[in-house]
Amino acid sequence: MKKWLWMISMLLLVFTVSGCGTNQTSTSSAHEEKSKTLVFGFTPGPYIDQVKKGIEPHLKKKGYTIRYVEFNDIIQPNFALAEGSIDVNIFQHTAYLENFKKENKLDLTEVIKVPTAPMGVYSDKHDSLDDLKAGDKIAIPNDPPNIARALRILEHLGWVQLKPDYKPISVSERDIISRKVNFTFVEVEQAQLPRTIPDVDYALVNGNFILSSGRKLSSSLYLENPPFEYQNLVAVRTKDKDKPFVKDIMEAYKSPEFQKIIETDPSFEGFHRPNYFQQ
């Protein structure tokens, strides 16, 4: 009897251990599957198209599942990234990210530049920049980093003269010494700028919002050559910057396949290309 009781006890122990092992394997697999799902955040524009066409195929080969979240304004994506509801966002340039991080105390990091749709000058009323006259209305973004960006473009065009010692990232209307003519600024939220083009004389609009409105970069009267601080980027939580998924995303952007898409797809015509692109 004792022998039979011992054998039954051993069998129960084996089944219990086996059950625990199965559960641990299942839990481990579920965790691995979750870690291979990446959630990308965007605002309307071309950067989601870049990922779908050139980045997602590369990541899928490495076993990732990609999900997309599109936000209606430029405020939400960084908060969503910081709180963990998305893993990556691609919609902003360095100046905007650094300003937003500072104002909202967010621990986010830029990891790589992406092909960028430049800011340009657009008009439905004028065919030339030479038509500028007194009383004209010029629409510009209403957020400080992009006000600075617009003013630097206008300085390049000779429409304004800025103080010699202005700070490139924070320059504002207060730094204007003189204007070519007495025109008026109309400050508008970035995403709404394309809608103002018919109602103003000139509008300085970020390229992604021009494209999302159905216009083309080639319809501009002037396109900037964006400096480093105005080139768009991939942002992640700082604690994640050295994780494998970030390295895999960077590898995808630097791949020959992605470069070929940017160079041959008409929807990316006029984009500024990062330094890692082969010339």
Rank of each mutant, 00 (worst) to 15 (best):
I176Y: 05
K102D: 12
Q76V: 12
V69H: 05
S170P: 10
D165T: 01
H93Y: 06
D143T: 00
K163Y: 09
G63T: 01
A150K: 01
K53F: 05
L59A: 02
P115D: 01
A80K: 01
L151R: 00
K167G: 11
K167F: 11
H126F: 05
W159I: 00
A117E: 06
P141V: 01
I176C: 11
E98L: 15
L106P: 06
S128F: 03
I177M: 15
A134N: 12
D130W: 05
D131N: 14
P77F: 04
K62F: 08
H126Y: 10
E98Q: 10
I112N: 09
I66Y: 04
D73A: 14
G135Y: 04
I66M: 07
I86R: 14
Q92S: 10
Q50I: 08
E56P: 00
L97C: 14
L81A: 14
D131C: 06
A80Q: 01
L129N: 04
L129C: 05
V160S: 09
G84T: 01
G45N: 03
L151C: 00
P164N: 14
L157Q: 03
F91L: 01
A117Q: 05
P144S: 10
I176P: 04
V51A: 12
A95R: 13
I147P: 08
D165E: 09
V171C: 13
S123G: 08
A139W: 15
L129P: 07
S172F: 11
A82S: 05
P115G: 00
V111S: 07
A95I: 09
K52D: 14
P44G: 03
E173W: 03
N72H: 10
K137Y: 01
A95T: 13
K105L: 10
G41F: 01
G135Q: 02
I138M: 14
A150W: 09
K133V: 04
K125S: 07
I90Y: 06
N99F: 14
D130I: 04
S178D: 09
P164F: 11
S170V: 02
D87Q: 07
F79E: 03
H156R: 15
I90S: 07
S85G: 01
T65P: 05
I169R: 11
Y122T: 09
T65E: 10
Y64D: 11
D175Y: 04
Y166A: 14
H156P: 08
R174M: 13
K105E: 11
